[in-house]
């Protein structure tokens, strides 16, 4: 982990001391990327770590500059992230690099099994995966050092691809607990049940759900669409600086997708960001992404603007991986 940071930071101005190939692993993706970018692009002026990764996007699509200028504050910086399945030690992520700035919407696309969902789960600290290398910095702090609940309280939210049922726990109680945990973290007084009800009631309209939705057990007997709406409701109640939406569109009909997209768009501010994982362009049409990343075999192999989705739709993933 240490060597990577060191290497990137020092690469442009003072390359000599650490920039010997010996101190680097033979095939560090990050290294290769920065190396190519510096050789192909603008080798002399590479001022900071941030722009190194920015230039990554710049290499692939020089036209999309939105959110890539230096004035933007990075929200999430992922470098050379590798992760294995905790049980089998099978490597899933093989060096993911990604920077999300405030106010940006990123989309990750890719074939089944390319590691998209694993990436999102690793970010929120799912116990099934073990991080073996790389770094993740969220709002200037090392995310990997935090417990899952600390990550959530820090402003990271993931909507699950398949939200789990929790029989016996009321939806409103669950939301109440989560919301109060957040308020406690912010040093605000916790809300009583009635106050909380008043707070949550207007949010129901946002996801187009009925009130009885709150009195049911968390996700128990929910349809696919209801589960996804419930995830967005949680997002609306809890708020997040970075919302990771893992296949929020799968299993949704057109109307439900529109509802969900509307809700997500309604929650967006210039400050907070979205990282969504999807298979379909339809979602990208309703939630317009700043960049699209293509993931394959545990790496992000291509980054581009929304036009990339169109290319994908027409030619499929093979056209990209062949490049």
């Amino acid at each position: 982990m240490a060597w990577q940071i060191q290497c990137t930071a020092s690469s442009p101005p003072a390359s000599p001391p650490p920039f010997t190939p010996k101190c680097l692993p033979p095939r560090s993706l990050f290294f290769t990327l920065s190396a190519t970018s510096s050789s192909r692009f603008c080798p002399p002026h590479m001022p900071s770590l941030r722009s190194v990764t920015c230039s990554l996007s710049a290499v692939e699509s020089p036209t999309s500059t939105a959110g890539l200028d230096d004035s933007k504050t990075p929200l999430l910086e992922v470098k050379g992230l590798t992760a294995v399945i905790a049980e089998t030690k099978q490597e899933i992520l093989k060096g993911v690099n990604l920077v999300v700035h405030q106010g940006e919407i990123h989309a990750i696309m890719g074939k089944n099994g390319s590691g998209k969902s694993t990436f999102s789960k690793v970010l929120v600290g799912h116990p099934d995966y073990e991080v073996t290398g790389g770094s993740v910095v969220f709002k200037g702090e090392n995310l990997l050092d935090m417990e899952p609940e600390e990550r959530s309280l820090a402003g990271l939210f993931m909507s699950f691809q398949a939200p789990i049922e929790i029989p016996g726990v009321n939806n409103i109680d669950f939301l109440h607990m989560a919301y109060n945990a957040r308020r406690k973290k912010l040093g605000e007084p916790e809300l009583g049940p009635l106050e909380f009800y008043a707070y949550i009631y207007p949010k129901l309209d946002l996801v187009n759900m009925k009130t009885d939705f709150l009195n049911r057990n968390v996700n128990e007997g929910f349809s696919g669409g209801e589960r996804k709406r419930n995830e967005i409701l949680q997002l609306a109640v809890l708020g997040a600086d970075l919302a990771i939406l893992d296949e929020i569109d799968s299993g949704l009909d057109i109307d439900a997708l529109r509802d969900v997209a509307k809700a997500v768009n309604g929650l967006l501010t210039p400050k907070n960001s979205v990282l969504m994982i999807t298979h379909y362009r339809r979602l990208l049409e309703v939630i317009k992404p700043t960049c699209i990343h293509i993931m394959e075999d545990g790496r992000i192999i291509k980054t581009g603007d929304s036009s990339l989705a169109k290319v994908l739709e027409e030619k499929g993933y093979t056209s990209i991986s062949a490049e």
Binding site: V124, G125, H126, P127, E147, P148, E149, S152, L153, M158, F160, P163, I164, I166, G168, V169, D173, F174, M177, A178, A181, R182, K185, V218, Q234, L238
Partner: peptide
Amino acid sequence: QLFYFQARGIDLETARKAL
């Protein structure tokens, strides 16, 4: 199930109790 609670910012102790 515990992770679902944690992912929403609820600490393990509270989550265990609720479950």
